[in-house]
Design a protein around this nucleic acid. Structure first.
Lengths: 343, 343
DNA sequence: TATGAAATTGACAACGTAGTCAATGAAAAT
DNA sequence: ATTTTCATTGACTACGTTGTCAATTTCATA
């Protein structure tokens, strides 16, 4: 395979000049530049990433870390991030923190250490729930590798976070239900170790309080952000003598579960029950009735995170104040919500 | 950061000995091994992947290439592949062939060339529809990098393919409908540039022929493997004077579209219309009624592909006969199919 | 024309590891 | 006791690029 010295010989210049041309460095005459480019073309030369990495200590690689890739949420963000990487000539690597690792702090620490020392990525994107784990941020940061966390989190360090304002979003979703006349609004929580759950719940509570609607603890169900727990929550609520007229689930998968629970009981959505989700994930518009939900610009979250890491995004690294970038959310009204029926 | 020479000094040995211990090579006394391991631990040493790559010309990286990551199909396979990689200490990189590239052969060629020469992955996993493009396989193969193609394809080279038997699977899905008494069975095709579409259609036709059911071209709709085209197909079929009693869609997203079309028209599923999908993707069981579908072991496809590349899977590279590994499919019967109603 | 400054170019070193090969020591065979 | 064999260990080099710095050329200025 052709290497730099071959190109140099072919073009009649030194390898350093070839290097300069390839890296768009100044101080090379245009005529030489052309000659080198032609030689590169003629030999089909492509620089070795390994050698470049070793010498320059930069890998041009962004590493995306998540817990499990099996979710539309992670998938969409990854897509946005990868697209942004490729546009800028960066590669993208992915890793998962398997359930076993996350539990034992020592294992997790070793894993992170290995990740950053071996791979030396130019930046790390932490997906929820890894974005909520302080020691991950800490170890990676200590190694001098910039991080962007995705999604709401309470870690306050020099690293950036890219997210939507989950609390405000949940609040406006709840207010939308209130405006439709709903008063008995149930809420399905997500995983307790993710700050998104708490933020969304806080938004829900805030909306109720703002509209003088008493908080009824029986209208809160636990959840794990998955279909099954949504189904269970729906079954629970719909078994009440006086069931809620609307359910707000902390994500779409759980909302789908509530919807199926309603279908099974022959309860009409949205006539007898309004359902609202969160994320606007892929399934939201494939359900029937199509799900009203809060749209997170997932792809944009991914590409914004990448931009923060690679630069050229207008963020100065010396920025002292807020290191959290909020992207706009949007309430997508579809057919799963409607005015409260007379009872 | 600690490097090998630091470990060597700390342990009082040469760097070569450290190297031997780290790579589990023979010819090191157990006492020295221990000493080295202790020094590694003490210094928190992790070998540099860049240096190792450069020297050994191996990257311990599997590269996954797809068209777009935004599908449950790709997502699930990626998950399986990543898991298998991590278990064996390999890294995983991902790339997308953007729509623009795929069209121009010269661009695609350059892109592939760059991918393999720069990154030098130890193996490549090609997802559909890239697994169906001959020149990609060709270029990568020429660079001496092993490939595994996922999904059915008609390329016959020395590289491996991991897939299910799409034709047989489609045939048994169709037969299931026939056994339920259906005779007017519609079919929604997928993208025409993917062999999966043709294989599944062939299986559908074969089942009809085997049961002496005449082929009715009006019961075939085009599709792009997405929800919208499924919806359009459903609208088309259900507008017939004599609509089909069952629809077989070439994937789940399109089946979801057919289902919503039926819901909108007030047609009861499965009483008046049976629907069957393909893939058993994430949404299949989140719909209502839950979708009967052909399950592809997507995660297994991903991990099997990885195993083929990394080795230790029982496949000899000198294997001369079949280079296609068929994984088992399974018909998952849920609530979207039922016996044909009397008309 | 002479002079200084800046642009241009290349020789050489260095990144951190694995491969080669020779030197040493220990065990087995004579 | 001597030779042979093999396990053990380390010195040195190569991988292909980029960084350093000095040498040379070009250009603007005096």
């Amino acid at each position: 395979m052709a290497k730099m010295v071959d190109v140099a010989r072919h073009a009649g210049v030194s390898i350093k000049t070839v290097s300069r041309v390839l890296n768009n460095e100044p101080h090379v005459r245009e005529t030489l530049r052309d000659k080198v480019r032609k030689s590169v073309e003629a030999l089909g030369y492509v620089p070795s990433a390994s050698a470049r990495n070793l010498r320059s200590n930069r890998t041009y690689t962004i590493h995306l870390v998540s817990h499990s890739l099996r979710s539309n949420f992670v998938n969409a963000i990854q897509f946005g991030a990868l697209q942004a990487c490729q546009e800028r000539g960066y590669r993208m690597a992915v890793s998962m923190v398997t359930p076993g690792m996350a539990e034992n702090e020592e294992t997790l620490r070793a894993w992170c250490d290995n990740l950053v020392k071996a791979g030396k990525p130019d930046g790390l994107i932490l997906m929820p729930p890894m974005s909520n784990v302080p020691i991950v941020s800490e170890i990676v940061s200590d190694a001098g590798i910039p991080i962007v966390r995705i999604g709401p989190n309470r870690i306050r360090d020099k690293n950036a976070t890219v997210t939507i304002d989950d609390q405000a979003a949940a609040r406006s979703a709840t207010e939308y239900l209130i405006e439709l006349g709903h008063r008995r609004i149930a809420f399905v929580r997500g995983k307790e170790d993710q700050d998104a759950t708490h933020e969304r719940f806080a938004g829900y509570q805030r909306a109720l309080a703002d509209h003088d609607i008493g908080f009824d603890p029986s209208l809160i169900a636990p959840g794990l952000f998955d279909f099954e727990t949504g189904l269970a929550a729906g079954d629970k609520f719909l078994a009440f003598e006086n069931p809620p007229t609307a359910v707000f689930a902390a994500n779409d998968d759980m909302a789908a579960g509530v919807l199926v629970a309603a279908h099974r009981k022959g309860i009409s959505v949205p006539d007898d029950l309004s359902i609202i989700g969160f994320d606007d994930s892929e399934i939201a518009e494939k359900m029937w009735p199509a799900l009203t939900t809060v749209r997170q610009p997932l792809q944009d979250l991914g590409s914004a995170a990448t931009s923060v890491l690679i630069g050229g995004n207008g963020w100065s690294s010396s920025e002292t104040n807020s290191r959290t970038k909020f992207l706009p959310y949007e309430l997508i009204t579809r057919q799963s919500t409607g005015p409260v029926g007379e009872d």
